[in-house]
Each structure stands twice: as C-alpha cells, then as structure tokens.
Deep mutational scan, measured.
Amino acid sequence: RRPMNAFMVWAKDERKRLAQQNPDLHNAELSKMLGKSWKALTLAEKRPFVEEAERLRVQHMQDHPNYK
C-alpha cells in the first residue's frame, strides 16, 4: 500500500474528531468538510503533516525498495 500523503496524515485524526462531533454525517459529507478545512490551512499549519508524509515516503522506500 502507498504511504499516506500530507492530507491523509492530517485527515486520519481530524476525521475521527469530526465524526465524533457530527455522528449523523455520512462519510461523503465528512470528506467534503475535511477538504475545505485542509484548503483553509496555511502552509505553516500544513508543514508538520507534509514533513510526516515525507518521512513515511522515505520509510516506505526503505521498506519496499521494489515498490513502483
């Protein structure tokens, strides 16, 4: 499986939080909310998630050198 990108790293915990706050929302609505929230973040706010995604990408390359 591919490593998570920055959005997916961020959305993993954010989706849980949103789902707890909005138990009646379907996954499609949660995804739309997550997309809008991600776009609203500044580059500085996204940076930790971008860095974690890069760390995961490098780790994935080391763990699976033949993955394409």
Rank of each mutant, 00 (worst) to 15 (best):
residue 49 F to G: 02
residue 29 E to V: 08
residue 41 L to A: 02
residue 15 R to W: 05
residue 4 M to V: 11
residue 1 R to N: 08
residue 5 N to S: 14
residue 32 K to V: 11
residue 44 A to W: 06
residue 17 R to F: 06
residue 1 R to P: 01
residue 16 K to R: 13
residue 41 L to S: 01
residue 27 N to A: 13
residue 30 L to S: 04
residue 48 P to Y: 00
residue 12 K to L: 11
residue 21 Q to N: 07
residue 65 P to T: 09
residue 42 T to V: 00
residue 10 W to R: 02
residue 12 K to A: 11
residue 57 R to Q: 12
residue 62 Q to N: 15
residue 23 P to G: 04
residue 4 M to T: 11
residue 54 E to T: 06
residue 46 K to H: 01
residue 53 A to D: 03
residue 1 R to L: 11
residue 55 R to G: 05
residue 24 D to R: 09
residue 23 P to M: 05
residue 14 E to P: 04
residue 19 A to V: 13
residue 28 A to S: 14
residue 13 D to T: 09
residue 41 L to Y: 00
residue 56 L to V: 07
residue 7 F to S: 03
residue 7 F to D: 09
residue 55 R to M: 06
residue 31 S to R: 10
residue 58 V to M: 13
residue 10 W to N: 11
residue 34 L to M: 10
residue 8 M to F: 00
residue 59 Q to V: 09
residue 31 S to Q: 09
residue 62 Q to D: 15
residue 55 R to E: 06
residue 64 H to F: 11
residue 35 G to A: 13
residue 49 F to P: 03
residue 50 V to T: 10
residue 18 L to Y: 01
residue 31 S to L: 09
residue 33 M to L: 07
residue 54 E to V: 04
residue 66 N to Q: 13
residue 61 M to D: 14
residue 64 H to D: 14
residue 25 L to W: 08
residue 36 K to T: 11
residue 59 Q to M: 10
residue 34 L to C: 08
residue 65 P to L: 12
residue 32 K to E: 04
residue 65 P to S: 14
residue 15 R to E: 05
residue 9 V to M: 08
residue 4 M to N: 07
residue 65 P to Y: 08
residue 61 M to L: 13
residue 54 E to K: 06
residue 12 K to V: 07
residue 28 A to T: 11
residue 9 V to F: 07
residue 15 R to Y: 10
residue 39 K to T: 03
residue 44 A to C: 11
residue 29 E to A: 08
residue 2 R to G: 10
residue 43 L to N: 10
residue 25 L to S: 06
residue 22 N to V: 06
residue 48 P to L: 06
residue 49 F to M: 01
residue 63 D to V: 08
residue 29 E to R: 04
residue 1 R to S: 09
residue 58 V to E: 13
residue 67 Y to G: 13
residue 64 H to C: 06
residue 19 A to E: 15
residue 32 K to Q: 08
residue 4 M to K: 08
residue 29 E to G: 09
residue 13 D to E: 15
residue 47 R to N: 03
residue 54 E to A: 10
residue 23 P to E: 03
residue 40 A to M: 11
residue 61 M to S: 14
residue 36 K to S: 10
residue 49 F to Q: 01
residue 58 V to Q: 13
residue 44 A to Q: 13
residue 67 Y to S: 11
residue 15 R to N: 02
residue 17 R to W: 02
residue 26 H to R: 15
residue 8 M to D: 15
residue 28 A to W: 05
residue 8 M to N: 14
residue 29 E to H: 06
residue 2 R to F: 08
residue 44 A to R: 07
residue 34 L to I: 02
residue 26 H to W: 03
residue 4 M to G: 09
residue 1 R to M: 13
residue 43 L to H: 15
residue 68 K to L: 13
residue 65 P to G: 12
residue 13 D to V: 07
residue 57 R to G: 13
residue 34 L to N: 01
residue 33 M to C: 04
residue 4 M to Q: 06
residue 25 L to P: 01
residue 19 A to S: 12
residue 18 L to T: 00
residue 1 R to D: 15
residue 2 R to E: 05
residue 24 D to P: 01
residue 49 F to C: 02
residue 57 R to A: 11
residue 44 A to G: 06
residue 60 H to E: 15
residue 6 A to M: 01
residue 43 L to Y: 05
residue 33 M to Y: 04
residue 9 V to P: 01
residue 8 M to K: 14
residue 4 M to R: 08
residue 36 K to N: 10
residue 39 K to L: 03
